[in-house]
Design a protein around this nucleic acid. Sequence first.
DNA 1: CACAACTCGAACACTACTGTTCAACTTACG
DNA 2: CGTAAGTTGAACAGTAGTGTTCGAGTTGTG
Lengths: 195, 195
Amino acid sequence: MSHPPARPTRRADAEQNVAKILDAAVACLSRDAGASVSDIARAAGVGRVTLYGHFPSREALVEAALTRALAEGEAVLGNLDLTGDPRDALEALITSSWLLVAQWTAVLEAAQEALPSGRVQELHAKPAQRVDDLIRRGQAEGAFRADLPAEWLTSVLHHVIHGAAIDVAKGRLDGADAARFIAKTILAAYAEPGS
Amino acid sequence: MSHPPARPTRRADAEQNVAKILDAAVACLSRDAGASVSDIARAAGVGRVTLYGHFPSREALVEAALTRALAEGEAVLGNLDLTGDPRDALEALITSSWLLVAQWTAVLEAAQEALPSGRVQELHAKPAQRVDDLIRRGQAEGAFRADLPAEWLTSVLHHVIHGAAIDVAKGRLDGADAARFIAKTILAAYAEPGS
DNA sequence: CACAACTCGAACACTACTGTTCAACTTACG
DNA sequence: CGTAAGTTGAACAGTAGTGTTCGAGTTGTG
């Protein structure tokens, strides 16, 4: 409780180190969800003790990394205009953010097994809601099929994006193609069956 | 090297224990890819030492479990007639095997991080090939879209099935709905865009 | 029945991780 | 420039896993 939040103002280099650590954490956890604190500290170019000076536990670090990744995502996706045709909106959302979302998912999964169950859902609720809203609106307007529940369509989107991220990471898919492939696939999967 | 394969015939109860262990391994690894040897031994109702008597290392155990899961899958999917309309064939393949495949994927992932890289692909090549063949045939016959590479379509199938398995495990999806949802989604995603 | 095959728990060495303490060092900042 | 804030590696305790050894007990099989 009295680790970093005790002092109202931290020294500039300390603040910078916190940022470096969070960068490294996102990078490491994206690559390997089980990355150790030592790995992250090394990647951040910082001593392990320094890291523990800023984050009292691995759990706190992972949560901070997730929170930061989500905040970054909010910054990008919050400005998107998703009010037009649901198909166009979804395509825009995918093309402009798939890599970001893929990185979310990786850190999200790291958090999944490092944080108490339910905590992740809690933090992730807002961004997930936006996608869900778009899909439901699309269903209501007849742009997306309504013979499958919105929860399932949301889930398919997440898993296809996540899968694409894995494929890119393993060299099975060109990163430049990914957004286009995902969009084409999802829009087809979401289309009204009798069209 | 001289663990079980030295004696040409093992005692009946030993053979039975090996089976119990493999059952437990598949069950445990499906639930948690990082399950420990102790966990698996306990689930099999067998001492840890006994387990090591049959499998020299965790790696060997995981590989045996994967091999066995794949063999089971072969037994089911090998008898399927996939020569008709590719759409029907794919739907049949999904409905009759999605749960099985979902279990594969879980063990597959466990193996992914317990076996040397590449070994998994090697063991998994044959069953993967069957799906790939079906998709390519569908594309050649105009039943499936050809504007996306077969590798991608295959990948989408795997990830949607895997995602559905996760959803079912987490209670977000009713297992009874899964096969139908997957089939509807995949067939739509695979359809020629201009249809 | 006799014996080899098998099982089992306890204990061991080893590795890898988390989290803490300490004492010395460097550096931002008033 | 002085000092408090921050950093650092080494060393430590604690936990959890893997894989091995041992010695005693159990049980299938010829």
